[in-house]
Design a protein around this nucleic acid. Sequence first.
RNA 1: GGAGCGGUAGUUCAGCUGGUUAGAAUACUGGCCUGUCACGCCAGGGGUCGCGGGUUCAAAUCCCGUCCGCUCCGCCA
Length: 586
Amino acid sequence: MRTHYCGTLDTSHVGETVELNGWVHRRRDHGGVIFLDVRDRTGLVQVVYDPDTVESFAIAETVRNEYVLRMTGRVRPRQEGAVNPNMATGEIEVLGSALEILNAARTPPFQLDEHAQAGEDVRLRFRYMDLRRPEMQERLQTRARIASVTRRYLEDNGYWEIETPTLTRATPEGARDYLVPSRTHPGEFFALPQSPQLFKQLLMMSGMDRYYQIARCYRDEDLRHDRQPEFTQIDIEASFVSQQEVMDLTEGMLKCVFKEVLDVDLADFPVLGYDEAMRDYGSDKPDLRNPLKFTDIADLMKEVEFQVFNKPANDPKGRVVALRAPGGAKLSRKVIDGYTDFVARYGARGLAYIKVNDIASGPDGLQSPILKFLPEEVVAEVLARTGAADGDVIFFGADQANVVNDALGALRNQLGSDLGLSVEGFAPCWVVDWPMFEEGRDGVVVAVHHQFTQPSAPLEEVISNPLSVRAAAYDVVLNGYELGGGSLRIHRQEMQAAVFEAMSMGQEAEIKFGFLLDALKYGCPPHGGIALGLDRLVMLMTGTHAIRDVIAFPKTQSAACLMMAAPSQVDDHQLRELHIRVRAEH
RNA sequence: GGAGCGGUAGUUCAGCUGGUUAGAAUACUGGCCUGUCACGCCAGGGGUCGCGGGUUCAAAUCCCGUCCGCUCCGCCA
């Protein structure tokens, strides 16, 4: 039908007769002349109808917003003074000669122009309307380009795109599974994959050597702004590779994507040890745009009278840190009280602070509810260690280490934005040398990354002292988001068995992962890989605030689709075939 | 599972210390207008104040419950 897209017309087309298709973005009816801003995915162009063309002028009078049109007209330069510099096609217009309404449209449920914003629930219910907005079209285009550059990069590096099943086996550990009932196996269920983890490892055992997939993953857990029940991973695995090689490939890929999509040159990613990240930022995914760092002061607090500080200072699982916020002394009492409530969400029982008004006048230059509990020389040493200067405020965290890390880590982020300390742009980093295991609830040993990760310790130590073992695992972090994580995998059956044993899942492992243990016996190459959250990457690269903004049809926080009204009840007949009876809720 | 915020016209919101006919902007409809571009001017239509219950002479407003949306904690190998 069309000869051109709306947004592509410019002065080079002047004099040409063009045929356009698109939606009426806005209509301005001046009685004797009617302007239509016509929109397609490339942009807007102004089409003018005047009474000289009687028939099409009459049709133009009946046109309304979001009508779908087919137009013929001649491109002409706009008159002096009629040029619109705010419009990409503002130097020209199309003088319409023919006009056909391909489809009328009801009044839109919300205005699609940039000057009105609808609530997210309305946008999601009418997502097909919301996606017409240029803003949304740009985001999805950016997403497509990111995926495209990713594919090309990986293919240039010898990676094959291989699909893996989405009907697979349930795994009780990790996230909750989405289950799919089997018609042919009464009472049995498939699970949708939380990731293609095992399949990609098996592909390495199959000699595929280098695999990638832009894979949909499913986790039935509660949602956040950066978590959807179904999400997309850039999933990568390679054989005969070192950790450094996987990291180099990934870093190269991200640099390439940022360069080609945003024309941004990312510097080499800093590499942080896990311990270092926790020590300096209280987080395993630190936002390095934020310059604030923790200062450990437990050693100074062991002898002080103040119980709030000396108890955690003397507790092996405790931690006492200071967090200096430059310029924070201007924060009002009300704001600081707000921070106290804020850190309480992470389990902190209070938030001590010292305002540094005039460091030269000693204690008199300080302002704090806790000064009376601390010896002068201890305070002086805290100021020295943190590098405090006039106008700063120093916050304190003293509790179990995990509470301090969570609470002050979150406060660090908050201060970064409230005080405008964070720099603009993109701050990626690697976090490496993760612990292999941690103590879960009831003291059970659980894998920090996953149970197929290669421990960086001999087999005996994995069994005898698992909590001391490190793993060949690495996360890539961007602006405080975990963008991806990977590891070298266990490629020897004995080691895999040892890890299962350390996790006290001997029998259980045989049943659930017997096929893997078997596969490891048939010649498994050393291998490793990584998976990156495509939705998060796109969110960060488009500067949006939730991955919902970069997913065409996302779910709400309660994991529902407002447009389709999914999930929904199904026929009894359908349930019967699946051998399922719905239990009455109490 | 828990906490907070929100739900009033198609939309975005105001009204919420209870008291005339629930209002603004925008959208929509009709009329006028030949150079606008968030066109302008005139007129008009438009409400289950999320839902259910309670208190009261009287509830958008107060109380209880419930549903929905968002943010967060838990959860997310």
